[in-house]
Design a binder for these strands. Structure first.
Lengths: 155, 155
DNA sequence: GGGCAACTTGACGTTAACGTAAACTGCGTG
DNA sequence: CACGCAGTTTACGTTAACGTCAAGTTGCCC
């Protein structure tokens, strides 16, 4: 009873609007292998996406933008997604060998940890930059106080 | 007694090495007006930089890299630096009109606040991404536990 | 003052990540 | 079922941010 609402299935234009990009970009990502296109498409037919694809694409764009990755780097970094897709695919196909699943999930976990480590590094770098700027700000404030002191109420 | 050591004055190659970039990039930045070239250069003579330039360039590259700015955007964002240079220039030139200084420093402060706001936005976006990844990680861990539970000590 | 590495300007080359145009096609609607 | 908009493939165009090459110059060291 979890598939009550069929989910309207988005076309590429809607998906683009939803994630704040363009159809061209989405096709390009698919072409680069970052977005496994909808399977079993009539070769010439319209692409159809789900709500899950919205979430996924948002994540891809976030990773790229916030970590400053090239599409090639992004490709290497998001293999966790592929692993995740694998899990679902194998489960759907009825494959449930626990050892195999454990293997796949473990690998996905490793990739997630990689992504998290990249995020943490970025956060550290940003914190350093912030500190730097804060120090400059303090110095500027100090200078202002000094000037205000000298003028003693000018305008 | 604060100018005891004259500071060796770096050439473009050394500066590039110090900040982790290339001479070409430095010249390009100067060409774009992001790095006011050393003043009073013999037109054809070698560029000479100071330790302050090292710090400054590092900041520029950090801002660009960590905020994902284009060089054009960077140019607009770093006007605080120009203001700061102005302050020093005017002070060196003997100009000390308090109102003028106050004006300049205030403007610089505004630019610093702009930069800080950009940093903070980025930090928020990164935090959101981190949360997202952490949730996925927890789910993966949960799935692993379930599998391990079912196999009860396999390998 | 001669040598040579590092620099200078100028020009053209390169690459990633799309934009854009053209000609055709699928698909929901009246 | 015709219509028209959104989508499809193919291909060439564009832009930022440098890389690279050539030919000449500067600056420091012996």
């Amino acid at each position: 009873m979890s598939t009550t609402i069929p989910a309207p299935a988005l076309r590429i234009g809607e998906l683009a609007r939803r994630v704040g990009t363009t159809p061209r970009t989405i096709r390009y990502y698919e072409e680069r292998g970052l977005l496994g296109g909808p399977p079993g498409r009539p070769a010439g037919g319209h692409r159809a996406y789900t709500e899950a694809d919205v979430t996924r694409l948002r994540e891809l764009l976030s990773l790229r933008e916030l970590l400053g990755l090239s599409l090639e780097e992004l490709g290497r970094v998001i293999e966790a997604e592929s692993a995740r897709a694998l899990v679902r695919a194998e489960i759907e196909a009825g494959v449930e060998d626990p050892a195999r699943l454990r293997e796949i999930v473990t690998e996905a976990l490793g990739h997630l940890d990689l992504q998290l480590s990249l995020v943490h590094r970025r956060q550290a770098e940003l914190a350093a930059l912030e500190d730097d700027l804060q120090q400059r700000r303090q110095r500027a404030l100090g200078r202002l106080a000094g000037i205000a002191d000298a003028t003693a109420g000018g305008d």
